[in-house]
Simulated scan of single mutants.
Amino acid sequence: MQNIPFYEITTVDAFKQAALQVFRKQYSTNDTYRKFCGLLSIKKEEIRLVEQIPFMPISFFKEHEVLSSSQPVQTVFSSSGTTGSTTSKHFVTDLSLYEASFTECFSQHYGPVTDYTVLALLPSYLERTGSSLIYMVDHFIAHSKKPESGFYLNDLEKLAKTLKKLDEKGEKTLLIGVSFALLDLVEKYEFQLKNTLVMETGGMKGRRKEMVREELHELLQKGFGVNQIHSEYGMTELLSQGYSNGDGIFTTPPWMDIQIRDTEDALSSVALGKTGGINVIDLANVNSCAFIATQDLGRKLDGNRFEVLGRFDTSDIRGCNLMVL
């Protein structure tokens, strides 16, 4: 099969063939991933099916420089972390791949971002450097070409006035925010929005007590006067995103796939609909690692749909005693 850009993948067969090509490339060029495969006694020529590809623990992005490219690094995305904790670092050699991925991901799910005024409430992300989310949203704001689009760091009053004005005018608006900041907004101001898509990116970042999705969404739905709260599933270590329309069910683009591993045996998968650890194939990660075992718990549903149920620590994953380089 001829190599095609990941964003041109449209079928399951094309995805599988591309995933095997990316695996062979990364086995050959990514020292960290190849050593990990070696610890599992896995050889490149033995992998003939996508289901046989091993998933590297996401914690390796904290401990190693995960690269499958010899090109110069253009930027380093880093995760948020508590004081003294080790953060993940994603070395990106081609930002155009990230831009193509998040632009097409959003467009496939919601339509062109140019249709929206983009209002961002992401204080915890803006207060540090290296956020891949800020890079994505900043790109959305610039390309929306709407005068009201922008970041609203702590100016909740201005944001509330802008939201109400745009909604009353019938303007399609995207409000994307971190959970605690969205709660701060609805506690101070009342809304009845009809033309606004409200999207939470998860996480209280230590500002509030954590709460389950149902509780969070109920408070936000009531506060904004909307029927659904949308969600984004993304992370520092990925260049693609999943989106949820509010029911807790996420969908992935054609170049991204979710598989579920057994929490008792990290090298085994579980049946459709069963709970386990979330493994991600993200073919936009062609220059780092496309096969990642996350610390999220979830369920794979039919097609490209999955549900996120929570998180667990790597110390809780049994069968991972080999997974240290």
Rank of each mutant, 00 (worst) to 15 (best):
residue 2 Q to Y: 10
residue 3 N to K: 14
residue 9 I to C: 15
residue 10 T to I: 15
residue 11 T to Q: 02
residue 12 V to S: 02
residue 16 K to G: 02
residue 17 Q to W: 03
residue 20 L to M: 04
residue 22 V to M: 08
residue 23 F to V: 04
residue 25 K to H: 09
residue 25 K to T: 05
residue 29 T to Y: 00
residue 32 T to R: 02
residue 33 Y to R: 04
residue 38 G to N: 02
residue 42 I to W: 01
residue 43 K to M: 13
residue 46 E to C: 00
residue 49 L to Q: 10
residue 49 L to T: 02
residue 51 E to M: 08
residue 51 E to Q: 07
residue 53 I to W: 00
residue 59 S to H: 09
residue 66 V to M: 12
residue 67 L to H: 01
residue 68 S to N: 12
residue 69 S to V: 09
residue 71 Q to W: 00
residue 74 Q to V: 15
residue 75 T to R: 02
residue 80 S to C: 13
residue 81 G to T: 11
residue 85 S to V: 07
residue 87 T to R: 13
residue 87 T to S: 13
residue 90 H to E: 05
residue 90 H to G: 06
residue 98 Y to H: 12
residue 99 E to M: 10
residue 105 C to G: 02
residue 115 D to W: 12
residue 116 Y to D: 01
residue 116 Y to P: 00
residue 118 V to Y: 12
residue 122 L to K: 04
residue 126 L to K: 11
residue 131 S to L: 14
residue 132 S to V: 12
residue 133 L to K: 03
residue 137 V to G: 07
residue 138 D to G: 13
residue 142 A to V: 07
residue 143 H to K: 05
residue 144 S to H: 05
residue 145 K to G: 02
residue 145 K to D: 13
residue 146 K to T: 09
residue 150 G to W: 01
residue 152 Y to W: 11
residue 154 N to A: 15
residue 155 D to I: 08
residue 156 L to K: 15
residue 157 E to F: 10
residue 157 E to Q: 08
residue 158 K to M: 12
residue 159 L to A: 04
residue 159 L to D: 03
residue 163 L to I: 09
residue 166 L to D: 01
residue 170 G to F: 07
residue 174 L to D: 00
residue 175 L to Y: 03
residue 177 G to W: 14
residue 184 D to G: 03
residue 188 K to R: 12
residue 188 K to G: 05
residue 189 Y to W: 09
residue 189 Y to H: 15
residue 191 F to V: 13
residue 193 L to I: 10
residue 193 L to M: 10
residue 194 K to V: 08
residue 195 N to K: 04
residue 201 T to L: 11
residue 204 M to S: 08
residue 205 K to N: 12
residue 206 G to E: 09
residue 208 R to Y: 08
residue 209 K to Y: 05
residue 214 E to P: 04
residue 216 L to C: 10
residue 217 H to D: 05
residue 221 Q to F: 08
residue 221 Q to V: 03
residue 228 Q to K: 10
residue 231 S to D: 06
residue 233 Y to L: 02
residue 240 S to D: 00
residue 240 S to Q: 02
residue 242 G to T: 00
residue 243 Y to A: 05
residue 243 Y to F: 15
residue 243 Y to T: 00
residue 245 N to P: 07
residue 248 G to K: 11
residue 249 I to D: 02
residue 249 I to V: 15
residue 250 F to P: 00
residue 251 T to R: 05
residue 251 T to L: 03
residue 253 P to A: 12
residue 255 W to T: 03
residue 255 W to H: 14
residue 260 I to Q: 10
residue 261 R to E: 03
residue 266 A to H: 14
residue 269 S to H: 09
residue 269 S to Q: 07
residue 271 A to D: 15
residue 273 G to P: 07
residue 276 G to S: 09
residue 276 G to D: 06
residue 277 G to V: 12
residue 283 L to S: 04
residue 286 V to C: 01
residue 287 N to D: 04
residue 289 C to E: 09
residue 289 C to T: 08
residue 291 F to C: 14
residue 296 D to S: 08
residue 298 G to Q: 02
residue 300 K to R: 10
residue 300 K to T: 07
residue 301 L to G: 02
residue 304 N to K: 05
residue 307 E to G: 03
residue 307 E to P: 00
residue 308 V to G: 00
residue 311 R to D: 06
residue 312 F to H: 14
residue 314 T to F: 11
residue 316 D to N: 03
residue 317 I to D: 06
residue 318 R to W: 04
residue 321 N to F: 08
